[in-house]
Lab assay of single mutants.
Amino acid sequence: EFSMMFKHFDKDKSGRLNHQEFKSCLRSLGYDLPMVEEGEPDPEFEAILDTVDPNRDGHVSLQEYMAFMISRE
């Protein structure tokens, strides 16, 4: 189920989600993330990124995504 969600939000089929795609994916899974303006701080989402994209390369791989989802179950 999680990998299907990942593929759905991987719009460019790159095998990874940019942070915006990842945020959309989390919202569709029921995460209550506040709407913030582009460039505004988003501490809740930043905290999630610290876990799922610790190297802050700007992308979430399928492996990082799956590890995050399994840790939340």
Rank of each mutant, 00 (worst) to 15 (best):
F2R: 03
F2D: 04
F2V: 09
M5T: 08
H8Y: 10
D10G: 08
K11N: 11
K13N: 09
K13G: 11
G15C: 02
G15V: 06
R16T: 09
L17D: 01
N18K: 08
N18T: 15
N18S: 13
N18G: 09
H19I: 04
H19E: 02
C25V: 07
L26K: 00
L26R: 00
S28E: 13
S28N: 11
S28T: 09
L29M: 11
G30Y: 01
G30L: 03
G30T: 01
Y31V: 14
Y31L: 13
Y31P: 02
D32Y: 11
D32E: 14
L33S: 05
M35I: 14
M35V: 14
M35L: 14
M35R: 13
V36P: 12
V36A: 11
V36E: 11
E37A: 14
E37S: 13
G39T: 07
G39K: 07
E40T: 12
E40C: 11
E40W: 07
P41F: 14
P41I: 13
D42E: 12
D42L: 04
D42A: 04
P43H: 06
P43I: 08
P43T: 11
E44V: 11
F45C: 02
E46D: 14
E46N: 09
A47S: 12
I48S: 00
L49V: 04
L49P: 00
D50K: 07
T51H: 11
T51G: 08
T51S: 14
V52P: 00
P54S: 07
N55W: 06
N55C: 12
D57G: 11
G58M: 02
G58S: 01
G58T: 01
H59L: 08
H59R: 07
V60D: 00
S61H: 09
L62S: 07
E64G: 09
E64M: 10
E64L: 05
E64K: 15
Y65R: 01
M66N: 10
M66G: 03
M66L: 12
F68I: 03
F68L: 08
M69Q: 05
M69G: 04
I70T: 13
I70S: 04
I70M: 14
R72E: 07
R72Y: 15
E73T: 15
